[in-house]
Nucleic acid binder design. Structure first.
Lengths: 120, 120
DNA sequence: TTCTATTGACTACATATGTAGACGATATTA
DNA sequence: TAATATCGTCTACATATGTAGTCAATAGAA
């Protein structure tokens, strides 16, 4: 299941608020994405076709819910990424994260407890 | 700097062995990638155009070296990935890695010392 | 020297992706 | 009821990406 960058923005909205219509999703994206109504609809159609979204008819419109869970998407996207860039080795990835300013104090604390958990 | 999946396979060869010719790179990819000579040349041309590779004329052919360092590529690819999928938060990424079989004992040990280093 | 193999340059083409217009049906409002 | 706003469907089009063919020049072999 491949989700493109633009499609992911749409998925985010649906994950956050399931059951919105195309127009609602378009509205929800204003501010972050300057897309026309048609663009959003195209992305919705592609995602539905791919099986990532379900479109429930409701009166004259459709309400969208995610068929693909966010955690499942994240897991598979991460696996693909690690396989592609790091040949499946996770440690160098984290080393890179560490080198970038990407890790906040909070992240580090989270990682620490994660490590504790992993060791058991 | 966007490197596509196919292009990345070519970069790997050049990172591992700088200064090969197109034919050498094609040969090096046999086994992992069933690409024609032309396909490899197209990828080489695209990478050179993007500035990821340097092509040094050598007699009648070109010898390729990386203009983009592997660690720099990995760092920026990782940053883009984390921004895209995790909105820049690294901890949930590692949590996913932990849940998959992606982390070996060794990885966990590496992570632990990494965390120690980060805390200081 | 003539044939052949090698090499780069140019070109091609299907599918994916980002982005959106046109159009017809229906609901809402005046 | 007539005008208008809304919604879905179909279609479009440029650029990116994966994959590769053709051709002319040149170097090496016979």
């Amino acid at each position: 299941m491949q989700i493109t960058d633009a499609e992911l923005e749409v998925m985010r909205v649906v994950w956050a608020r399931p059951g919105l219509s195309a127009a609602d999703i378009h509205t929800a994206l204003e501010g972050s994405q300057d897309w026309s109504r048609q663009t959003v609809k195209t992305l919705l159609a592609r995602l539905t076709e791919k099986g990532a979204l379900n479109a429930e008819p409701e009166g004259r419109k459709f309400l969208y819910t995610a068929a693909l869970k966010q955690t499942d998407y994240e897991a598979s996207a991460t696996e693909r990424f690690v396989d592609k860039v790091y040949r499946g080795r996770a440690a160098p990835l984290v080393a890179h994260l560490a080198d970038s300013k990407g890790l906040t104090e909070e992240d580090i604390a989270d990682l620490e407890s994660l490590i504790e958990r992993l060791k058991s």
